[in-house]
Amino acid sequence: MYPEPIEQYFQPTTLAAALQLVATHGSAAHILAGGQSLVPALKARAVPARALIDINRVTELATLTTRAGGLWLGALLRLTAVARDPLIGRTASALADAAAALGDRQVRNRATLVGSIVWAMHWGDIAPAAAALDARLCLAGPAGRREVGIESFVVGPQLTVLGAQEMVLALLLPAPPPHTGSCYLKHGRVVQDRATLGIAVCLTRGPEGRCAEVRIALGGLAQHPICRATQIEERVRGQIFNAALLEDLKHWASTTITTHTDELASAAYRRQLIGVYVPRALELAWQRSAESGR
């Protein structure tokens, strides 16, 4: 339960220095941020020790600012801060919910918003929530900066397009349209657990009590950390949002999603959970869209 020898350890204090180190060492180094996933992996000797670039002193990465009406969430923001921030709570509740649902108090005090996305475990909480919110990531590398939509960033379980010489600088959230609400619900076996199933919903109310726009992203499914439930979205988009719609989804929603069996749950139970949680998540997002008022 101890890491292999760690040859080099760097503790840059500026973004420029950090980027330089990442460019130099590339895949021969790990970026150490919150460490709540990396340190266990090092201790288990599941990943080679290599060199560590500890970016926790790069304060530039911990900023939270508005940008074009949306939010720039620095990569180093801790989940505790994300869960509590009033602006995030008002305009991107799904992300606040996901941050609050991950791990325990101590883990959230260190774990970063972006760490979970970069590890891209299929049971991760942050990526589906970010996807429902149509988030983008800002990456930086030797070739400069680029922005990538989250669903283009996470391409499969434990697979992202992050280059060996790149770092994530921030999660970007667009300005939500008026009357938008979002949420993230998580089903675990016990209070502190991986997601057996996670459901993130972001929807926008339209006139006449209709759902004008909706994005639904599921987590906890083996095939991908972010499973967009596009068929369910089509079924809901433009419809009058009422009990009959939700009741219909209860029986039908799970038929549109492939589920798997693992040590957490069976495929059948996951289908059952989809039927339970999709309506609940939609309902909660709808309520919040009323409260958002904008």
Binding site: V190, V191, D193, R194
Partner: peptide, 16 residues
């Protein structure tokens, strides 16, 4: 044995 950590051998926490 697949239960090799306290994340799969689930000792109850206070909230459980």
């Amino acid at each position: 044995q697949t239960t090799d950590t306290l994340q799969n051998y689930l000792i109850a926490a206070a909230g459980d």
